[in-house]
């Protein structure tokens, strides 16, 4: 039985074959090119990380901001607040020794809302059981990669104020 050779295919027929199996087949060349495309995406992502702060500068504020009165927060309690002009949630914690701490309420792992557990004196993230030290915000256990961002707290005349901590520029 003699078979006649198939006519040569046009580039369009090669790129978009009629046969389904042929259309779904991924060659090693295509796979390698796709890996290279992903690699380009990673490079673009790294570039975005590098320029992000220049395009969208992080929110900062000058001076002190009033949060609440001292008697509004009992020992071991938490007072949520936000800074005007920002939507970032913060929590003011009154520790069992009577001192105050203010932390961002978003876990540094996947931004779940954290809460203060007064009996353990720890800040807990319920999503993946991350634990932070309530005294300084450092990670004690779990997946969070960084300490909780904090604000400096000062108490004057029975009022609680917060201000931006002095940034240690490590450029």
């Amino acid at each position: 039985m003699s078979s006649t050779p198939l006519p040569p295919r046009s580039p369009a027929e090669t790129d978009f074959p009629i046969d389904r199996a042929e259309a779904e087949h991924v060659t090693r060349r295509e796979f390698a090119k796709f890996l290279c495309l992903l690699s380009g995406g990673m490079a673009v992502g790294s570039g975005w990380v590098a320029v992000k702060d220049k395009i969208f500068p992080p929110f900062t504020f000058e001076g002190e901001r009033f949060v609440c009165n001292v008697e509004d927060v009992v020992f071991g309690a938490t007072h949520p607040f936000t800074i005007q002009g920002s939507r970032t949630p913060f929590i003011l914690i009154r520790l069992n020794d009577g001192s105050f701490r203010a932390y961002e309420q978003k876990c540094t792992h996947l931004a779940c809302a954290v809460y203060y557990s007064p009996d353990k004196n720890k800040i807990e993230c319920p999503c993946h059981h991350g634990y932070f030290d309530a005294n300084d915000g450092k990670v004690l256990a779990g997946p969070p990669p960084r300490p909780l961002p904090h604000l400096e707290v000062s108490v004057r005349d029975g009022k609680v104020f917060v201000r931006e901590p002095e940034r240690k520029e490590r450029t």
Binding site: C36, S39, G40, M42, A43, G45, S46, G47, V49, A50, K52, D53, T108, P145, R146, R167, K168, E169, R170, T171
Partner: peptide, 23 residues
């Protein structure tokens, strides 16, 4: 990304350059 979010900006540009070279 981790270092940048932690306020350490010394890493992001070398990481970008290294990533571009690898690409």
């Amino acid at each position: 990304l981790n270092e940048s979010l932690d306020g350490n900006n010394a890493v992001k540009w070398p990481a970008f350059i290294a990533s571009s070279v690898l690409f």
